[in-house]
């Protein structure tokens, strides 16, 4: 209890400094709204956030897809998952629910991927839904067999990085610039990247939930 006092004082001092910093910022920071909107017609999409994510700052997203893959590599290196096979028995309530929910989730994930070009949505939002669908499927025991195909899982997990890197290489051959899309084709390339990323993001999030690599013996 005694050691809490200095830490509390430290945190309060931190808070005071942070508050001071916020209040001394310009009331209307310059930002990049105008620049983002001005280049929007050239970006290949009409949703400004997607334009930033996949075009203006697409390089961040390339590394971020790498971080996602790294996370699953790291977790698989640490431990075997409590794969659901061990506590899988028929779940009379889950199965009927899955029959209704699963198609809706998949459809919604695809819809979010597509709508991302025009409105809020995109590969990450769609991937989150896909990840949720994968968790449900696993809890329902439907994926017992799929888990045995560890190679297939690995292929799906690396798909995002591989396709993204391939798009980098191809567009660089065409334009000479990293992630510089040939004029007028931005939308297509973004959709290619996002479709592959959707699969990897969904799988990564779903498999992270189980916190370890699949255990073939349980499958």
């Amino acid at each position: 209890m005694t050691s809490r006092m200095p830490i509390g004082v430290l945190s309060l001092a931190l808070l005071a400094a942070l508050g001071w910093a916020v209040l001394s910022l310009p009331l209307r920071p310059a930002g990049l709204t105008a620049a983002s909107l001005a280049k929007l017609p050239e970006s290949g999409v009409t949703n400004p956030v997607t334009a930033v994510l996949l075009n203006y700052r697409g390089y961040d997203t390339l590394l971020e897809i790498g971080v996602l893959l790294l996370a699953i590599v790291a977790v698989w290196s640490l431990r075997r998952g409590e794969w659901p096979a061990s506590h899988l028995h028929d779940r009379p309530l889950l199965m009927p629910l899955l029959r209704v929910v699963l198609p809706v989730l998949l459809l919604a994930a695809g819809y979010l991927l597509w709508i991302g070009a025009f409105a809020p949505g995109g590969a990450f939002q769609g991937g989150a839904l896909l990840g949720g669908a994968i968790v449900l499927v696993m809890l329902g025991g439907l994926a017992r067999r799929a888990l045995a195909f560890e190679r297939l899982l690995r292929a799906g997990l690396v798909l995002g990085v591989i396709v993204f890197a391939a798009v980098c290489a191809v567009t660089m051959l065409l334009t000479g610039g990293l992630l510089q899309f040939p004029a007028g084709t931005g939308g297509t390339w973004i959709m290619v990247i996002e479709s592959a990323a959707l699969v990897s993001i969904g799988l990564t999030l779903g498999l992270l939930y189980f916190g370890g690599r699949p255990n073939a013996h349980h499958a």
């Binding site: 009331l27 209307r28 920071p29 310059a30 930002g31 990049l32 709204t33 105008a34 983002s36 909107l37 400004p48 956030v49 334009a51 930033v52 994510l53 203006y56 700052r57 961040d60």
Partner: peptide, 14 residues
């Protein structure tokens, strides 16, 4: 806080 018709999309992407 930024001026303009929409909030700044750059921090959103970040």
């Amino acid at each position: 806080q930024t001026p303009g018709p929409i909030p700044d999309p750059v921090p959103h992407a970040m």
